[in-house]
Amino acid sequence: MSGRGSVVGVVRRFWSARESGIVVALVLLVLVTTVDSPNFLSPQSVRDLLLGAAILVVLAVGQTVVVISRNIDLSVGSVLGLVAFATGKLLSSAPATPTAVAVLLGVGLGAVCGVVNGVLVAAARVPALVITLGTLYAFRGVDHSWARGEQINASDMPRSFLGLGTWTVLGVPVLAIIALTVVLAVGFYLRNYRSGRELYAIGSEPAAARLSGIPVGRRVFTSFVVCGASAGLAGVLYAARFGTVDATAGTGIELQVVAAAVVGGVAIFGGSGSAYGAALGALLLTTIGSSLAVLRINPFWQQAVVGGLILAAIGLDRLLAVRAANRLRGRSSHDA
């Protein structure tokens, strides 16, 4: 890691990485917005951006783990809602609960939901899209029938817990630090551990994975538990950040989560993509929301822009893949 050569290498790797495309888009977006409205980059504003993205980032990273292995988890919004309500309920009825315990319980409940998905997908060998579409309805129904229209307000929860959503360390929101930790941990795991790489292998070619002796069922099961746990964590963070929780929290967020992952370069049919990309995708989507609000663009355009972005992202991935294939083809014919 010393000398000019490695610097050049790092730069080159940056340019060839899929993530760099999103970074460029993000930078451009922030530049344009800042030119129009200079205090878009004020400390408070940046803090807000990070805060706003944190929950989506956690969800998108969890989703990445599942999507990489050629599955999908559509139930994350419902899990988030369920855990957010459960956390609120716990803290309003037992305000003395330490924040750490509340977080752990929330993550645990999310993981339990993940276990349900994982068992159905891995053991019953049923397509994840169908199962998680089913649990999307089912978890939300459980949430509703538990809440029965009850709303938990900020005043019902202890300040120490709500602080999780507002405190900053050296000016950086705690929420963003938690999200970043999750990104780094999952990203590091996926890149550097055998079981992480096996998820890519499963997503890339499931039949080959089975022949290679990879415990496919167990890995897929684990990926759903991880995704559920991250949705659980997101639920706890949601409760802390917004302070107001009812049974509808997180409704419809699953599409944003999938969109963030796809925009971040996670292939919808598995095998490639990274947690970092997904996190950047989530950050980009959130920033677009904030930018449009700041630029005072007709808010009706936002959804259309997000849709266009998804199409652009997958189109770009395709283009890059075709280019790379052409390059390889050229090279191998020279070697022959």
């Binding site: 790489r197 292998a201 039949a207 290679s212």
Partner: peptide, 26 residues
């Protein structure tokens, strides 16, 4: 052939048996 098209050739060869460094890292 039963390869993983998205992974590198080296990873294909060593899938599940990658040489490990410290802390179980590949």
């Amino acid at each position: 052939p039963t390869l993983f098209p998205d992974l590198s050739v080296a990873e294909n060869i060593f899938m599940g048996r990658q040489p490990l460094g410290r802390f179980g890292r590949i």
